[in-house]
């Protein structure tokens, strides 16, 4: 299932996930399949700022992991999923806590996937895994490049298995080391990366 190149180099200490159009359904194929003791997962989904989204409430009952909306300065803990709140950027501090911000939108998005990925790459370096799901933007491509630069790895949803292939395709174009994984295999690929010695 997992390409040899993805075999663990550093242990995986955190996973960052970004998605846009179609991503809520795609996340439903990933998050509920992760075990309760999985490393922390931080998630940015593009949603309209005017509609308070209830992603944490939506996913909490379906997941073994604890599902929360990220709060500024909350410690990032194993076994927890953190969603970026609507209309805030979610960042990771050097000492591995959540940080929220209302700096300008990036790639027309707030929260932005690049902002999460870049800050997480600084905090987690080679022990970070990025995941880019379905979407119609280029948000996430620059972030995945920064993750690779820090020695971390990125998986993208196999474009053929997406609702909108633009976003994972942009990552594949920008980051040669990124690997495409069909949606149905994404959770097991992540589990294998965490399990691998």
């Amino acid at each position: 299932m997992v390409p040899a190149a993805l075999g663990a180099r550093a242990g995986v200490e955190a996973v960052v996930v970004g998605g846009s159009a179609g991503a809520v359904a795609a996340l439903g194929e990933v998050l509920p399949k992760l075990p309760a003791d999985f490393p922390p997962v931080l998630v940015v989904v593009h949603v309209l700022p005017s509609t308070p989204h209830l992603l944490a409430e939506l996913f909490a009952p379906r997941c073994a992991m604890r599902v929360l909306e990220a709060e500024s300065f909350a410690a990032i803990e194993r076994g927890c999923v953190y969603f970026a709140p609507a209309d805030y950027h979610l960042l990771v501090t050097r000492d591995r806590r959540c940080a929220l911000s209302i700096e300008p939108p990036v790639n027309f998005s707030r929260p932005s996937i690049d902002v999460l990925f870049e800050s997480a790459a600084v905090a987690f370096g080679p022990s970070l895994v990025g995941v880019v799901l379905t979407g119609a933007s280029h948000d996430g491509a620059e972030g995945a490049r920064v993750i690779a630069e820090g020695g971390g790895r990125t998986l993208v949803q196999e474009p053929a298995t997406t609702e909108v292939p633009v976003m994972p395709a942009a990552v594949l174009a920008a980051v040669p080391s990124a690997h495409a994984v069909p949606l149905a295999g994404m959770a097991s690929a992540l589990r294998a990366m965490v399990m691998a010695p």
Binding site: L91, T93, R94, D95, A99, E103, S119, V122, A123
Partner: peptide
Amino acid sequence: YSSASVRRR
């Protein structure tokens, strides 16, 4: 200030 945001800015 939170280091993440200051660094980015």
